[in-house]
Protein backbone atom coordinates (compact mmCIF):
# COMPACT_ATOMS: atom_id res chain seq x y z
CA UNK A 1 0.00 0.00 0.00
CA UNK A 2 1.13 3.50 -0.71
CA UNK A 3 -0.49 6.84 -1.34
CA UNK A 4 1.39 9.38 -3.40
CA UNK A 5 0.40 13.02 -3.64
CA UNK A 6 1.92 14.68 -6.64
CA UNK A 7 1.77 18.50 -6.61
CA UNK A 8 -1.79 18.47 -5.29
CA UNK A 9 -3.66 21.72 -5.35
CA UNK A 10 -7.15 22.60 -4.24
CA UNK A 11 -9.00 25.84 -4.80
CA UNK A 12 -12.46 26.70 -3.53
CA UNK A 13 -14.80 28.40 -6.01
CA UNK A 14 -12.19 28.24 -8.71
CA UNK A 15 -12.54 30.89 -11.37
CA UNK A 16 -14.61 33.27 -9.23
CA UNK A 17 -13.43 36.29 -7.25
CA UNK A 18 -14.06 34.25 -4.09
CA UNK A 19 -11.35 31.82 -5.15
CA UNK A 20 -9.28 30.67 -2.19
CA UNK A 21 -6.45 28.25 -2.19
CA UNK A 22 -6.85 25.54 0.41
CA UNK A 23 -3.99 23.32 -0.72
CA UNK A 24 -0.90 24.54 -2.48
CA UNK A 25 1.51 22.22 -4.25
CA UNK A 26 1.45 19.37 -1.75
CA UNK A 27 3.66 16.41 -2.60
CA UNK A 28 4.29 13.51 -0.28
CA UNK A 29 4.26 9.76 -0.05
CA UNK A 30 2.52 7.70 2.58
CA UNK A 31 4.10 4.28 2.89
CA UNK A 32 2.72 1.03 4.20
CA UNK A 33 2.64 0.68 7.96
CA UNK A 34 3.55 4.25 8.85
CA UNK A 35 2.12 6.05 11.88
CA UNK A 36 1.82 9.65 10.74
CA UNK A 37 0.82 12.71 12.71
CA UNK A 38 -0.72 15.69 10.93
CA UNK A 39 -0.68 19.01 12.72
CA UNK A 40 -1.56 22.56 11.76
CA UNK A 41 -3.48 25.59 12.84
CA UNK A 42 -7.28 25.55 12.29
CA UNK A 43 -7.81 26.41 8.62
CA UNK A 44 -4.31 25.32 7.62
CA UNK A 45 -5.68 22.76 5.17
CA UNK A 46 -5.41 19.62 7.31
CA UNK A 47 -9.06 18.65 6.88
CA UNK A 48 -8.98 19.43 3.18
CA UNK A 49 -5.89 17.30 2.79
CA UNK A 50 -7.30 14.19 4.47
CA UNK A 51 -10.54 14.44 2.51
CA UNK A 52 -8.48 14.21 -0.66
CA UNK A 53 -6.93 10.95 0.45
CA UNK A 54 -10.20 9.03 0.18
CA UNK A 55 -11.66 10.97 -2.71
CA UNK A 56 -14.27 12.98 -0.81
CA UNK A 57 -12.73 16.11 -2.29
CA UNK A 58 -11.26 16.29 -5.73
CA UNK A 59 -7.97 18.09 -6.32
CA UNK A 60 -8.16 21.01 -8.75
CA UNK A 61 -4.56 20.38 -9.74
CA UNK A 62 -1.96 17.62 -9.46
CA UNK A 63 -2.57 13.94 -9.00
CA UNK A 64 -3.09 11.38 -6.25
CA UNK A 65 -1.94 7.80 -6.72
CA UNK A 66 -3.11 4.85 -4.69
CA UNK A 67 -0.72 1.92 -5.14
CA UNK A 68 0.72 3.68 -8.15
CA UNK A 69 -2.61 4.16 -9.87
CA UNK A 70 -4.19 7.58 -10.32
CA UNK A 71 -7.48 7.83 -8.42
CA UNK A 72 -8.60 10.39 -10.99
CA UNK A 73 -8.25 7.90 -13.83
CA UNK A 74 -11.55 7.39 -15.63
CA UNK A 75 -13.54 4.52 -14.19
CA UNK A 76 -11.54 4.41 -10.95
CA UNK A 77 -13.88 3.22 -8.19
CA UNK A 78 -14.01 5.81 -5.43
CA UNK A 79 -16.17 3.44 -3.46
CA UNK A 80 -13.37 0.91 -3.44
CA UNK A 81 -10.82 3.55 -2.56
CA UNK A 82 -12.97 4.51 0.43
CA UNK A 83 -12.96 0.97 1.71
CA UNK A 84 -9.15 0.94 1.58
CA UNK A 85 -8.73 4.38 3.07
CA UNK A 86 -10.97 4.69 6.13
CA UNK A 87 -11.69 8.18 7.40
CA UNK A 88 -12.99 8.90 10.89
CA UNK A 89 -14.28 12.45 11.07
CA UNK A 90 -14.11 14.73 14.10
CA UNK A 91 -16.84 13.94 16.66
CA UNK A 92 -17.70 10.75 14.75
CA UNK A 93 -20.31 9.81 17.36
CA UNK A 94 -22.65 12.34 15.70
CA UNK A 95 -22.94 10.07 12.68
CA UNK A 96 -24.31 7.07 14.59
CA UNK A 97 -27.87 6.34 13.49
CA UNK A 98 -28.86 2.72 14.06
CA UNK A 99 -30.88 1.41 16.97
CA UNK A 100 -28.07 -0.76 18.29
CA UNK A 101 -24.29 -0.61 18.23
CA UNK A 102 -23.78 -3.79 16.20
CA UNK A 103 -26.12 -2.74 13.38
CA UNK A 104 -24.44 0.63 13.19
CA UNK A 105 -21.02 -0.90 12.80
CA UNK A 106 -22.47 -3.20 10.09
CA UNK A 107 -23.37 -0.19 7.95
CA UNK A 108 -19.97 0.11 6.31
CA UNK A 109 -19.40 -3.60 5.52
CA UNK A 110 -22.96 -3.84 4.12
CA UNK A 111 -22.27 -0.91 1.81
CA UNK A 112 -19.25 -2.87 0.62
CA UNK A 113 -21.66 -5.54 -0.55
CA UNK A 114 -21.02 -8.11 2.16
CA UNK A 115 -23.79 -10.45 3.28
CA UNK A 116 -25.58 -9.92 6.58
CA UNK A 117 -23.51 -12.71 8.18
CA UNK A 118 -20.17 -11.50 6.89
CA UNK A 119 -20.98 -7.92 7.88
CA UNK A 120 -21.87 -9.03 11.37
CA UNK A 121 -18.65 -11.01 11.71
CA UNK A 122 -16.65 -7.98 10.60
CA UNK A 123 -18.57 -5.70 12.97
CA UNK A 124 -17.99 -7.98 15.93
CA UNK A 125 -14.30 -8.19 15.13
CA UNK A 126 -14.04 -4.39 14.86
CA UNK A 127 -15.90 -3.78 18.10
CA UNK A 128 -13.61 -6.16 20.00
CA UNK A 129 -10.59 -4.45 18.45
CA UNK A 130 -11.62 -1.12 19.96
CA UNK A 131 -12.18 -2.82 23.28
CA UNK A 132 -15.97 -3.00 23.28
CA UNK A 133 -17.24 -6.31 24.63
CA UNK A 134 -20.32 -8.31 23.74
CA UNK A 135 -22.38 -6.50 26.36
CA UNK A 136 -22.46 -3.39 24.14
CA UNK A 137 -23.58 -5.08 20.91
CA UNK A 138 -27.29 -4.68 21.50
CA UNK A 139 -27.15 -1.40 23.40
CA UNK A 140 -28.46 1.75 21.77
CA UNK A 141 -25.51 3.87 20.67
CA UNK A 142 -27.22 6.88 22.20
CA UNK A 143 -27.07 5.37 25.70
CA UNK A 144 -23.30 5.06 25.68
CA UNK A 145 -20.85 7.43 27.30
CA UNK A 146 -18.92 9.88 25.13
CA UNK A 147 -15.79 7.74 24.96
CA UNK A 148 -17.73 4.57 24.18
CA UNK A 149 -19.72 6.28 21.43
CA UNK A 150 -16.50 7.42 19.89
CA UNK A 151 -15.05 3.93 19.94
CA UNK A 152 -18.20 2.50 18.37
CA UNK A 153 -17.89 5.09 15.61
CA UNK A 154 -14.25 4.18 15.02
CA UNK A 155 -15.27 0.52 14.88
CA UNK A 156 -17.76 1.52 12.17
CA UNK A 157 -14.84 2.47 9.93
CA UNK A 158 -12.54 -0.36 11.06
CA UNK A 159 -15.20 -2.91 10.12
CA UNK A 160 -14.60 -1.99 6.50
CA UNK A 161 -11.08 -3.40 6.90
CA UNK A 162 -9.24 -0.37 5.59
CA UNK A 163 -5.50 -0.48 4.99
CA UNK A 164 -5.16 3.14 5.98
CA UNK A 165 -6.99 4.65 8.93
CA UNK A 166 -7.25 8.44 9.07
CA UNK A 167 -8.56 9.99 12.27
CA UNK A 168 -9.44 13.66 12.56
CA UNK A 169 -8.84 14.64 16.19
CA UNK A 170 -10.19 11.43 17.67
CA UNK A 171 -9.70 12.65 21.25
CA UNK A 172 -11.47 16.04 21.03
CA UNK A 173 -13.60 16.68 24.10
CA UNK A 174 -12.56 13.53 25.97
CA UNK A 175 -11.13 13.55 29.48
CA UNK A 176 -7.43 12.69 29.93
CA UNK A 177 -8.02 9.01 30.61
CA UNK A 178 -10.46 8.68 27.71
CA UNK A 179 -7.87 10.37 25.52
CA UNK A 180 -5.11 7.97 26.55
CA UNK A 181 -7.41 5.00 26.04
CA UNK A 182 -8.36 5.97 22.49
CA UNK A 183 -4.78 6.77 21.51
CA UNK A 184 -3.61 3.53 23.11
CA UNK A 185 -6.14 1.56 21.06
CA UNK A 186 -5.04 3.27 17.88
CA UNK A 187 -1.39 2.58 18.60
CA UNK A 188 -2.28 -1.07 19.18
CA UNK A 189 -4.15 -1.28 15.88
CA UNK A 190 -1.08 0.10 14.20
CA UNK A 191 1.22 -2.34 15.95
CA UNK A 192 -0.87 -5.50 15.86
CA UNK A 193 -2.95 -5.12 12.71
CA UNK A 194 -0.25 -3.39 10.70
CA UNK A 195 -2.62 -0.53 9.88
CA UNK A 196 -1.20 2.61 8.35
CA UNK A 197 -2.46 5.41 10.58
CA UNK A 198 -2.77 9.14 9.98
CA UNK A 199 -3.61 11.02 13.15
CA UNK A 200 -4.76 14.63 12.92
CA UNK A 201 -4.13 16.27 16.26
CA UNK A 202 -3.89 19.57 18.07
CA UNK A 203 -1.80 18.11 20.84
CA UNK A 204 1.94 18.27 20.32
CA UNK A 205 2.35 16.19 23.46
CA UNK A 206 0.25 13.37 21.99
CA UNK A 207 1.93 13.25 18.58
CA UNK A 208 5.34 13.33 20.26
CA UNK A 209 4.50 10.13 22.11
CA UNK A 210 2.77 8.18 19.36
CA UNK A 211 3.77 8.96 15.79
CA UNK A 212 6.94 8.23 13.89
CA UNK A 213 6.48 10.81 11.16
CA UNK A 214 5.05 14.27 11.45
CA UNK A 215 3.48 16.44 8.74
CA UNK A 216 2.95 20.14 9.42
CA UNK A 217 0.48 22.15 7.35
CA UNK A 218 0.33 25.91 7.15
CA UNK A 219 -1.79 28.03 4.79
CA UNK A 220 -2.39 25.05 2.52
CA UNK A 221 1.30 24.21 2.26
CA UNK A 222 3.23 21.30 3.66
CA UNK A 223 5.79 23.09 5.81
CA UNK A 224 7.53 20.18 7.52
CA UNK A 225 7.68 16.46 6.89
CA UNK A 226 9.96 14.41 9.11
CA UNK A 227 10.49 12.58 12.37
CA UNK A 228 8.82 14.37 15.30
CA UNK A 229 12.16 15.04 16.98
CA UNK A 230 13.47 16.68 13.86
CA UNK A 231 10.29 18.72 13.25
CA UNK A 232 10.11 19.92 16.86
CA UNK A 233 13.68 21.15 16.67
CA UNK A 234 12.21 23.91 14.47
CA UNK A 235 10.09 25.08 17.38
CA UNK A 236 10.62 28.76 16.65
CA UNK A 237 9.24 28.37 13.13
CA UNK A 238 6.38 26.27 14.49
CA UNK A 239 5.47 29.11 16.83
CA UNK A 240 5.33 31.51 13.93
CA UNK A 241 2.56 29.42 12.39
CA UNK A 242 0.57 29.13 15.61
CA UNK A 243 1.98 25.79 16.74
CA UNK A 244 4.55 24.82 19.34
CA UNK A 245 6.79 22.04 20.56
CA UNK A 246 5.79 19.87 23.53
CA UNK A 247 6.17 21.62 26.91
CA UNK A 248 9.11 19.45 27.92
CA UNK A 249 11.11 20.58 24.90
CA UNK A 250 10.82 24.14 26.17
CA UNK A 251 11.91 23.10 29.64
CA UNK A 252 15.02 21.46 28.19
CA UNK A 253 15.83 24.61 26.23
CA UNK A 254 15.28 26.79 29.30
CA UNK A 255 17.62 24.56 31.31
CA UNK A 256 20.27 24.69 28.66
CA UNK A 257 20.08 28.47 28.42
CA UNK A 258 20.48 28.68 32.19
CA UNK A 259 23.74 26.76 31.88
CA UNK A 260 22.49 23.25 32.58
CA UNK A 261 24.04 21.02 29.92
CA UNK A 262 21.09 18.88 28.90
CA UNK A 263 19.99 17.37 25.58
CA UNK A 264 17.41 19.70 24.02
CA UNK A 265 15.95 17.26 21.53
CA UNK A 266 13.68 15.63 24.10
CA UNK A 267 9.99 15.53 23.18
CA UNK A 268 8.32 13.34 25.80
CA UNK A 269 8.22 13.46 29.58
CA UNK A 270 10.08 10.16 29.85
CA UNK A 271 12.87 11.38 27.59
CA UNK A 272 13.19 14.65 29.48
CA UNK A 273 13.37 12.77 32.76
CA UNK A 274 16.19 10.58 31.48
CA UNK A 275 18.09 13.48 30.00
CA UNK A 276 17.92 15.57 33.17
CA UNK A 277 18.89 12.63 35.37
CA UNK A 278 21.74 11.87 33.04
CA UNK A 279 23.13 15.37 33.41
CA UNK A 280 22.59 15.41 37.17
CA UNK A 281 24.25 12.03 37.69
CA UNK A 282 26.94 12.96 35.26
CA UNK A 283 27.79 15.92 37.43
CA UNK A 284 27.67 13.72 40.49
CA UNK A 285 30.01 11.22 39.04
CA UNK A 286 32.34 13.72 37.54
CA UNK A 287 32.50 15.65 40.78
CA UNK A 288 33.07 12.44 42.73
CA UNK A 289 35.76 11.36 40.33
CA UNK A 290 37.80 14.44 41.06
CA UNK A 291 39.08 14.06 44.61
Amino acid sequence: MSITLDHVEYKYSEGTPMETEALHDVSLEIRDGEFIGLIGHTGSGKSTLIQHLNGLMRATGGDILYNGESIYREGYSMKELRSHVGLVFQYPEYQLFESDVLSDVCFGPKNQGLSEEQAKARAIEALRLVGMGEEYDKRSPFDLSGGQKRRAAIAGVLAMKPEVLILDEPTAGLDPKGRDEILGQIARLHREQGLTVILVSHSMEDVAVYVDRLLVMDHGRLRFDGAPREVFSHYRELEEIGLAAPRVTYIAHALKEAGFPVRTDVITVAEAEEAILCTLNGTNEREKATP
Binding site: D175, P176, K177, G178, E205, P246, R247, V248, I251, V269, A270, A272, E273, I276, L277
Partner: peptide, 15 residues
Protein backbone atom coordinates in the same frame (compact mmCIF):
# COMPACT_ATOMS: atom_id res chain seq x y z
CA UNK B 1 -9.89 9.78 38.87
CA UNK B 2 -9.24 9.59 35.08
CA UNK B 3 -7.39 12.90 35.17
CA UNK B 4 -3.85 13.98 34.56
CA UNK B 5 -1.31 16.58 35.60
CA UNK B 6 0.40 19.25 33.47
CA UNK B 7 3.60 18.04 31.77
CA UNK B 8 5.78 20.25 33.97
CA UNK B 9 4.31 18.71 37.09
CA UNK B 10 4.59 15.21 35.70
CA UNK B 11 8.24 15.70 34.87
CA UNK B 12 8.98 17.10 38.34
CA UNK B 13 7.05 14.24 39.91
CA UNK B 14 9.01 11.67 37.91
CA UNK B 15 12.36 13.23 38.82
Amino acid sequence: LRLDVPQVTELAYGL
